[in-house]
């Protein structure tokens, strides 16, 4: 059976999960530097415990370590999201449309920041990282139903914020 202590196995776990671990911590706390440190910490811990952690558990192991690292320690900061400017490339849109779109993105940013961190994390993991609900459930260590609930509430709250309801 594959062993996490083997360099190849470990590297493949690192490559396929480190970015998501980084994003996951960033979505929660809004601090890039801390998110980067969390990735390092989580994988060092995984390496130290490689003999005890079976490969199929390695993934949830690193998310748990990364999350626990800042649990109750780090105060959530403002999450600053970037937008891929697709519109600029095909920019034969009117300035009014572009302005409106810019305003809408600002509203969305504010709304995202006002979400509870667990709703924001689920929403962004799904929207940006394309993670399925089942996978997010594994990361967060809860059931799929709970993730669906968070996703539903996230979208509902975003709309209420943006539409000013």
């Amino acid at each position: 059976m594959d062993n996490v202590c083997e360099e190849e196995v470990f590297n493949s776990i690192f490559k396929s999960n480190s970015k998501t671990v980084f994003n996951y911590i960033y979505y929660k706390f809004g601090n890039e530097e801390k998110a980067y440190d969390a990735v390092q910490e989580a994988f060092v811990k995984l390496w130290e415990n490689c003999a005890k952690v079976p490969p199929q558990k390695a993934k949830s192991f690193v998310y748990t370590v990364a999350n626990n690292m800042y649990l109750n320690v780090l105060k959530a900061e403002k999450v600053r999201m970037k937008y891929a400017d697709k519109s600029e490339k095909t920019s034969n849109e009117s300035p009014e449309f572009l302005l409106e779109e810019k305003e809408f993105k600002e509203k969305l940013d504010r709304a995202l920041n006002s979400l509870p961190e667990n709703q924001r994390t689920v929403f962004l993991l799904n929207r940006i990282d394309g993670k399925k609900y089942a996978e997010i459930a594994e990361i967060e260590g809860v059931g799929i139903k709970a993730i669906e609930k968070r996703m539903h509430l996230a979208l509902k709250t975003l709309r209420e914020q943006i539409d000013g309801i």
């Binding site: 590297n11 970015k19 980084f22 980067y36 999201m81 962004l124 929207r127 979208l155």
Partner: peptide
């Protein structure tokens, strides 16, 4: 509209090689 706008959302850059 929200979902449409969220399509263009991006996470901060993460340099995998540097991290490794």
């Amino acid at each position: 509209k929200i979902i449409g706008a969220s399509e263009s959302l991006e996470a901060p850059t993460f340099d995998l090689e540097r991290a490794l």
